[in-house]
Amino acid sequence: MQPILKIILSRLMMGLLTLLIVTVVIFSAVELLPGDIATETLGQSATPETLAAFRSKFNLDQPVHVRYGLWLAGAVQGDFGVSLSNQRPIAELIQSRAGNTFFLAGYAAAIAVPLAILLGLVAALYRNSAFDRMISGTTLVAISFPEFFVAYILILIFSVTLGWFPSLADVDGSAPLPERLYRTFLPALTMTLIVMAHMMRMTRAAIINLLASPYIEMAELKGIKRWRVIAVHALPNAMAPIITVVALNLAYLIVGVVLVEVVFVYPGLGQLLVDAVSNRDVTVVQAACLIFAATYILLNMAADILSIIANPKLLHPR
C-alpha cells in the first residue's frame, strides 16, 4: 500500500499547489485593474483623511504581499472580505448562493451521470445499431445547442405547452425538498442534456476500445452473457477515462451554470456573478472565481485519485 499512498499524496500536493497558483492569479488580476479602490468607492469628493481611514480599514496601505497573505488567510477561513457595492460580507452573500448552485449541480449530476453511463453501456452493447445511432445523435444534438436555447425549448414544452413544471426556479434552501426538486427540475434537466453527451460517448468509446481485448474474448468464450461481459468485465477496466470525463462535466455543472441560472432566475452563484460583474463589484467576482477554480481543481484531483485507485496494479502491488 506504500506506493499508492505516495502517489495519492503527491496528487493532493499538486492539487493544493495548483490552487495556490490560482489564488495568486486571481489576486493579481484584481490588483492590476486600473484605478484606486478607495477613491472609486468614496467618490472624488472624499477628503484625504477619509481616504486614509478607508485604506487602513481595508489594509490597502499595506504592501501587496501582505495584502495577499491577509486575503488568502481570510479566504481559507471562509472570509472573503466585504462587497464593494453594498459593504456586506461576501461570505454571507455567497453562502446561500453557493449552496443553491451545488444543490442544482448535484441534482443534475444525480440524473446525468448514471444515465450517461447506462446509455453508454447500452450503446456499446448494441453498437452500430439504430438504437446506438439514435442515442449518439440525440445527445449530440443536445450538446450542440447553447444551453439557454435548450432551456427555452424545455420551458416551451414542459411549462408553456404541457404545464407540468414551473418556468421559474426561484426557490432557496428554506423550501421543503420535494418542492425544491420539483421547481428546479427544468434547470436540472437542461444541464443534464448539456453534459450527457460527453460522458455517454466516452463510456461507449472506452468500452468498445476494450472489446477487442483478449480477456473480453475469454469472457465471451466462457459463456458469459453479453450484458455481463460489458458491465462486469469491460466497465471496471474502462473506469479511468470515464472518471476523468465525469469529473470534467461535474465541474462544468457548477462552473458553467451561469446562463441556465439566469434563464430560470435561480438564486445561485451564477446569478450573483452576473450581478457582480454588471455592478463592477470586484471583490465578489474574485471570491466567486476562487470558488469556481477550487471546485474545478478539487474535482479533477478527485478524478485523478479515483483513477489511480481503479487500477488494480497500483492498488494491489506485487
Binding site: S213, P214, M218, H233, P236, N237, P312
Partner: peptide, 8 residues
C-alpha cells in the same frame, strides 16, 4: 497475461 481480466 492478456486473457485474464486485470481487474479481478
Amino acid at each position: 497475461a492478456a486473457a485474464f481480466n486485470p481487474a479481478f
